[in-house]
């Protein structure tokens, strides 16, 4: 028993370190990616290729004054950024990076991630509500309606995968997809099911994770040109820093989940060099796609976002759920 707790403690520490390092260097990646897409070099001045930029930025953020504007709901205002960061770190505990590297595998790991994932929407709502700022307020309301709208197709597609695997254990889901490239859930061939809708399911899940993490083109919550900075308008110093890190940590979680559910986790495509790097390769490719998308498209509006969710994503994912259930019954 104590061993398990120690295990979890160490895992959380490692997770925090992983998340912090990722968040910091994803900002660097984002800036470099944006730079190259826009044909400029991105950060270059600090260190080689600007690699020292993230620590410098971190120090800058930490040394700044933490401003609490007058008239805010202080308790909620302070809790919100913590709440934005904390659930994402917890979620890392159950994510399996490979056969061995997992902090604490649970048979309901998937459920747990979703439960903690929904909490970030609450953090945004709290931040927006407590800030006493109309822009923040509008932004947080947007963020919540967006989170609710996108939770549904995301869960429906997840259920499809869970039905195929027959388990909510993330390890189990990956194991079911073992055996090479064509066995991954993204392809229609897996497990002998000829479910042609699986690639679309993957796409739906990917879009939903974009929306869940408030990434462009679904970054309505912090729509810069409309709502200034959205829910974190009033935050300064590390309050802002935590939101920022939380956002990037969420991206990593989204990429991890997509990899586990659809891209076969750490499974190597053609039996080449099996190992944890395949997992990392896959999530970083997905993260690159996140960045790539962000710097390509304009932002949607709230109604086209909801239209997309309710009129396109939910019907298709529901249909896929039905189809998969039918196919599972037949084969």
């Amino acid at each position: 028993m104590t061993l398990t707790f120690l295990n979890i403690f160490i895992a959380v520490v490692i997770a925090i370190a992983f998340v912090a390092a990722n968040a910091a260097y994803l900002v660097w990646c984002e800036r470099k990616g944006a730079g190259f897409i826009q044909r400029r070099p991105g950060p270059t001045e600090n260190g080689l290729w600007g690699l020292l930029q993230p620590p410098v930025d971190g120090i800058k953020l930490m040394t700044k004054q933490l401003m609490i504007p007058g008239g805010v709901d202080k308790i909620v205002f302070i809790i919100a950024p913590v709440l934005a960061m904390f659930p994402t770190i917890i979620s890392f505990v159950t994510i399996p990076f490979s056969d061995q590297i997992v902090a604490h595998n649970m048979n309901i790991g998937l459920l747990m991630i979703f439960v903690f994932g929904s909490m970030s929407a609450m953090a945004l709502l709290m931040a927006g509500w407590s800030s006493r700022n109309k822009f923040a307020m509008i932004s947080s309301v947007r963020a919540v309606s967006q989170a609710v709208a996108y939770e549904i197709p995301m869960l429906v597609t997840t259920i499809t995968v869970v039905m195929i695997a027959g388990s909510m254990d993330l390890m189990e889901i990956v194991h079911k997809q073992g055996g090479g490239f064509w066995h991954w859930n993204i392809w229609p061939l897996q497990n002998g099911l000829f479910n042609v809708l699986m690639p679309f399911s993957f796409l739906i899940f990917f879009i939903c994770s974009l929306a869940e993490t408030n990434r462009a083109p679904f970054d309505l919550g912090e729509a810069e040109s409309e709502l200034v900075a959205g829910y974190h308008t009033e935050y300064s110093s590390m309050g802002f820093g935590l939101f920022f890190m939380g956002e990037y940590a969420n991206i990593v979680i989204g990429a991890c989940l997509t990899t586990i559910l659809f891209l076969g986790g750490w499974d190597c495509p053609f039996g080449l060099f099996p190992g944890v790097w395949w997992f990392l390769l896959k999530i970083y490719f997905l993260i690159f796609t996140f960045i790539w998308i962000r710097w390509t498209f304009p932002r949607t509006t709230i109604y086209s976002l909801l239209n997309l969710s309710w009129k396109v994503l939910i019907p298709i994912s529901l249909f896929n759920l039905l189809l998969t259930a039918g196919l599972l019954k037949v084969f």
Partner: peptide
């Protein structure tokens, strides 16, 4: 305008 709509890169291409 595209920046107002949330797309950043076209601005840079246009400025080029």
């Amino acid at each position: 305008f595209v920046l107002d709509l949330g797309g950043f890169s076209p601005l840079m291409y246009a400025f080029d």
